[in-house]
Write a protein that binds this DNA or RNA. Sequence first.
DNA 1: GTCTATAAGTGGATAGAC
DNA 2: GTCTATCCACTTATAGAC
Lengths: 191, 191
Amino acid sequence: MHIAREDAIVSAVNRLLAEKGFEAMTVDEVAAEVGIAKASLYKHFPSKEDLAAAAMVRVMDRARAFLDTLDAQRPPLEQLREVARWTMAVQLAGEMPSLPSENSSLRAALTTNKAYVDGLMDVSDRLGAWITAAQADGSLNSALPPIAVLYTLYARACDPVLGFLKGAGLYSNEQIIDMVLSTCFDGLRKR
Amino acid sequence: MHIAREDAIVSAVNRLLAEKGFEAMTVDEVAAEVGIAKASLYKHFPSKEDLAAAAMVRVMDRARAFLDTLDAQRPPLEQLREVARWTMAVQLAGEMPSLPSENSSLRAALTTNKAYVDGLMDVSDRLGAWITAAQADGSLNSALPPIAVLYTLYARACDPVLGFLKGAGLYSNEQIIDMVLSTCFDGLRKR
DNA sequence: GTCTATAAGTGGATAGAC
DNA sequence: GTCTATCCACTTATAGAC
């Protein structure tokens, strides 16, 4: 009923955000995709920003659920690689919302959304633990500040290289992910 | 006179595109920054897309001019590294237009703009030659298709990691560029 | 809660005088 | 070529009936 409908709304928002981004997505489209009137949407979510925030909260929840499935016994660098693989798979599946990274009304709305911020903090803490562990065991470059590693991993979720390579039409999704994983962890230089 | 004014227009467009992106930039803002009426703008450029295309053509010209300054005697991998460094410096200086990479009216306008396409092809050809040379001399990972390397380098021009690290406020522009250069060419894994 | 209808505002583009 | 003034399509958001 109520929850199911809001779930359908968030699904539509998530898909449209992945396809066109926040600015190009219109509330009319969301309502049309859900099959309800626009005014009804606003009974569930008070603004377009809140719609996008709800989609981001869901993605963050999906990420945390994925982290829960990982085998805690495996080496930390492997965990990080699996996380990067997952984010790229989500993006290639057309399920990763694409948001403006700066100077937007959406940024302010997101930073004041407790559910989103809490989720982001949780994910960052878990990744941060693996990063420091991987640097301690010598598998990750210790010259890089952990924050730079964290951002580099987050950036895989919106890497335009995935879309470019997909557009080239020469490689499967798995090949694309493997190539970008290679550039991310092994670098362009020959090992 | 005419040329100087159009140059001022393109400069304003370039700055606003770097600051806010194509969709968030309004033609009113461009006119206000140049100090002329909006209708006058449209005497010089027939559409907002053409404004952005002109900015992209200028960036492409700047890139080609930079390529001309490189010492052709140096190893190809060094050339590629210098190109990546340059694109990141331009971005950090707030002079790199940020455009939607897909599904936009702008994409169509750009692909039919001969000056832009020619410039892009020229740059791609020059980078492509260095890429294959670097793979031949063993300095660049030969398992990666050259197109994947090319896109990876292009992506440095719009890498959100630069802005994230700048926002952290802990590092200088030079440090940020060196870190991202390291992750790009050497990878996250320990060497 | 859902709907139709519309308010309120914005942005790209243009008409027409000078 | 530049200006003022305006048009028109579109978008977010809301009012009010059911």
